[in-house]
Write a protein that binds this DNA or RNA. Structure first.
Length: 411
DNA sequence: TCTGGGGTCCTAGGACCC
DNA sequence: TCTGGGGTCCTAGGACCC
């Protein structure tokens, strides 16, 4: 594979980059690319990174794997069926995060206006970098070069006058390319795209629009905003119409604070008993509490999510009088919510907890923290009991209010 | 073919207040 | 007593993105 600056030749959407200050930089098959850094022997082979269990899905697929019809979000079982020699690697998130930080660091040497939108992509506004580094096109080429030399993974760059178009441009530049869409060619470029290429159009929206004979962006433009709003709702309609006509004045800005924190797990064997469910909720509640405190946040609303073996999903939530960042409080609330659903008795394929309505922690957090320390001691005690139990058999033990039972793996 | 986990945003109905 | 209208908050569920 060849790296370095190169402009996609297959389509020419202008060479005038004077009005296109927005770059969207997107790594190609990021997780796989990072794995290949550590496993060069796997280059050129069909490789995917995917969830560790049989219920997992493909997180990233090498271009060789894609030739077998394998895509991200595809169930692993199907992917393996499509390609017998498929190499499946488990995800190593901490490694990907480290590489991601390295890449974001490179971005920040070109402009302070960097907005990461996931682990492997970001928007950059380079309007202020012209004098130092050249035109957007030149900056795009430099960024690709830097990422290649310093990190060694391929990156694609889209350059346009709006965020939305820059994002679509980078998608069209893949793999390992760069695409500029000049401002005066923007609407022309959009018109020919299938509706599904627009950001925010998923399977459901596409089905709705296709069933009404709408297939390309120009169909949406001709339909008009009012009619579109009637089909897919007011907010979604207005948004989609704006994108279809390249009206997108969102600025590139540094990331906002998180609005929710959640932890959920899917179980190969559905959870069957109340005790199992509670144990999962307890661990998840503590995980969330820790994360809340590390960001000095309190949750006003606690929600749980359950999914039954027939893939039906339910949620329950409650808003507290006093916001909390305390594992025990979150757990108690989550347990009550679970009791309300009565879904757990049917067996749970998925169970999760979410903290929403986050507010900055001010006074009163100290007391919470102290309680948490006591709680950690209690957990250590519980672990000790677990150890004893592992030695002496599978009878349930009662310890204070915590039901202790053998870990899943032992059954 | 059988569907992860982390998020964001929107809708619609009901409660409540003035 | 038999019933308005606007605003805000809460809850459940759905669509979407990476």
């Amino acid at each position: 594979m060849s790296y370095g600056p190169r402009l996609k030749e297959r389509k020419n959407w202008g060479t005038d980059d004077s009005q296109t200050p927005i770059l969207h930089v997107d790594m190609d098959a990021f997780f796989v690319s990072v794995e290949l850094l550590d496993r060069p022997d796997l280059r050129g082979k069909p490789v995917v990174v995917g969830g560790g269990t049989l219920r997992g899905v493909v997180s990233a697929a090498s271009y060789e794997a894609r030739q077998f019809g394998i895509n991200s979000a595809m169930p692993l079982q199907i992917a393996m069926r499509r390609c017998a020699q498929l190499i499946v690697l488990p995800a190593r998130m901490s490694r990907y995060r480290a590489v991601s930080e390295q890449i974001m660091q490179i971005f920040s040497t070109f402009t302070p206006l960097v907005e990461p939108i996931s682990i492997d992509e970001a928007f950059l506004d380079v309007s202020g970098a012209r004098k130092l580094y050249g035109s957007p096109l030149q900056i795009g080429a430099l960024i690709r070069q830097e990422i290649h030399q310093q990190v060694g993974v391929p990156a694609s760059v889209g350059i346009a006058n709006t965020k939305h178009l820059a994002k679509i441009a980078s998608a069209n530049a893949k793999p390992d390319g760069m695409l500029l869409i000049s401002a005066n060619r923007a609407e022309d470029f959009l018109r020919h795209l299938p509706i599904g290429a627009l950001w925010g159009v998923g399977e459901q929206t596409l089905k709705k629009l296709n069933s009404r004979g709408l297939f390309t962006v120009v169909d949406l433009v001709n339909l008009g905003q009012a009619s579109l709003e009637k089909i897919i709702g007011k907010a979604a309609g207005a948004k989609l119409y704006a994108l279809a006509t390249n009206q997108d004045d969102r600025a590139v800005h540094p990331p906002m604070v998180e609005k929710s924190i959640s932890k959920e797990e899917t179980f190969y064997e559905p959870l069957q008993t109340w005790e199992e469910c509670c144990a999962v909720l307890l661990a998840q509640s503590h995980f969330i509490a820790k994360k809340l405190r590390s960001q000095s946040l309190l949750a006003r609303t606690i929600a749980i999510k359950v999914r039954t073996p027939d893939f039906r999903t339910k949620s329950r939530s409650v808003t507290l009088a006093t916001p909390t960042a305390l594992g025990k409080s979150i757990y108690e609330v989550a347990k009550d919510l679970l009791a309300q659903t009565e879904q757990w008795s049917k067996g749970l394929r998925l169970l999760g907890v979410r903290a929403e309505n986050l507010v900055g922690a001010e006074r009163g957090v100290q007391a919470d923290l102290f309680t948490e320390v006591k709680e950690q001691r209690a957990q250590k005690a519980a672990q000790a009991v677990d150890a004893v139990q592992e030695k002496f058999g599978n009878n349930f033990l009662q310890l204070g209010t915590n039901m202790v039972f053998p870990p899943r793996d032992n059954r």
